[in-house]
Design a binder for these strands. Structure first.
Lengths: 133, 133
DNA sequence: ATGCACCCTGTAGCAGCTACAGGGTCAAGA
DNA sequence: TCTTGACCCTGTAGCTGCTACAGGGTGCAT
């Protein structure tokens, strides 16, 4: 039997976050003690660990939900899970590419700044409106 | 004179977004027509262009605000602007590194999946709780 | 009995928009 | 002139994924 605080420490999750997961239906409502405290068991620990690892890998909560329901069905073909993971990987790669493009632009902008006053600053100029001289 | 819709098309910004920027004080309140429509001028176009370019480069709104007030002071030394841009670049680089680590983990997880049922799936296993066999 | 750490519910806040609901305005066409 | 339709107005609520209260109750040690 774990209290919410113990479960939180075991999974590196804030107490409020656990209650939030319960509220949105990601964690089942646990049984309660006489004093109305939430009482968690091993299954809850497993489920929350799963959620936290998936989150740490960047899966959004709705994908975590999908992964959870897929993985509950132990006899099913795991192709769908593989697909979800691949889709997520593709998204991560897209984000990396976007950020790399951003980095190039930022670096070029910073390089162009030769100091001086704001009026002469290339950074400000680069951010300003397209001028039709 | 531009209506809010025209300004939006000129800067690729949604009308609601422009009103939002006004609400949070990023854009000044424009004058109004007889019919109470917002009436924008060249200065507004310039300012909104600046905001949108900075946003496209990933600057959060509070940094955009700082950049705007710095760049209003044309005679000032542009070192602070340069610093803000460099800080932002550093953040982008940190994000790229984080995502690259994520990508490695995801790719390794996906590689390990040899198909079969969910019960055998390495992805599910990798996400599951640490087992003390 | 008293203090303290923990637990409870419910609500509001963060970024940065986006999407209504429920109206008013304006120009063009019949 | 009337009507249609595209636009505009305000105000408020929703999105993600938490996080932070306020205002209470519980449980254990001293």
């Amino acid at each position: 039997m774990l209290t919410i605080g113990e479960l939180g420490r075991a999974t590196e999750t804030g107490v409020e976050t656990i209650r939030y997961y319960e509220r949105i239906g990601l964690l089942p409502r646990p049984s309660r003690t006489g004093g109305n405290y939430r009482a968690y068991g091993e299954a809850d620990l497993g489920r929350l660990s799963f959620i936290r690892r998936a989150r740490a890998l960047g899966f959004p909560l709705d994908r975590v939900r999908a992964l959870l329901s897929l993985s509950d069905d132990r006899g099913r073909d795991c192709a769908t899970i593989d697909l979800l993971a691949r889709e997520h990987l593709a998204e991560v790669e897209r984000k990396i590419a976007d950020l790399a493009a951003l980095r190039r632009e930022l670096a070029a902008m910073i390089d162009s700044c030769g100091g001086g006053t704001v009026a002469q600053c290339r950074i400000v100029e680069a951010l300003g409106p397209a001028r039709r001289d």
